[in-house]
Amino acid sequence: MEEIKKIARELLAENKVQVVLGFEKGTANKVRPAFFTKAEDIDKLIYNEACIHNIALYLKKDTCQHAKGVAITATPNVVRSILQLSAENQITEEKIHIIGITHEGKCAGILDFKAAEEFSKTQPKGLKPEDKALIEKIQAMSLEERFDYWVEAFSPCIKCYACRASCPMCYCGKCNVETNNPQWIPVASHKYGNVEWHMMRAMHLAGRCINCGECNRSCPVDIPLNILSYMLSDFVLDEFDSEAGLNSVFTSALSAYTVVDKENFIK
């Protein structure tokens, strides 16, 4: 904690970075992501077990885009997001100073991308047991039950797109849902539009999702939509041996191919 502050303060004081991305105390014992631009403000920077938000998404926002240097307090999920953003040419190494924080909450110092790759490989990842159980439960259902399950699960969706807004990988300037000619995704939140939206979301994240679970956490109606991406990441790993968030230079599964890809359903 003090170590994180010290690093952040130094970076700002030496003008290596113009903004530090981290957390500050919010209202009612909550924490909130914050941008620190002055070394004296760093006193307000905090890190504790409540700081679970994936703040890598702010790297694509104007404040960070316009700064010459950005430091970020990075938990394993944030580090993985940064690596994937770099793999998609969204951020450059020179600009980002990663202040690594292990899953136990210990400071791992400043990581360059090479160190971040090592860090990312050593940190635990994978599905929570309850998510795994839910995936298995759904896979055991019959086709009709699965369809009904998802239609029902998506039906409370109010199309607030918090899942999109909280996802570091959903950085497109103009999203397909805003396209209204042709209208890919219906605007109203009826069952049909909800199914299509979540299906599109899952497909767009297939092979790119780093499984931080932020989409599920930010969902105001608690749709288990993260397991769609979890299931696909698992599948992509098995099928194509490709995993997002481990390398800063990487072509994600659906942007690549091999001539020997195996399938058993094309006639």
């Binding site: 259902m141 039950e145 699965r146 369809f147 399950y149 599964a253 890809d261 399938e263």
Partner: peptide
């Protein structure tokens, strides 16, 4: 082909 492999998996999982 890759897209179909993944899409088919997603469809199966979503009951389509």
């Amino acid at each position: 082909r890759r897209r179909w492999i993944v899409f088919k998996k997603l469809c199966d999982f979503m009951g389509i």
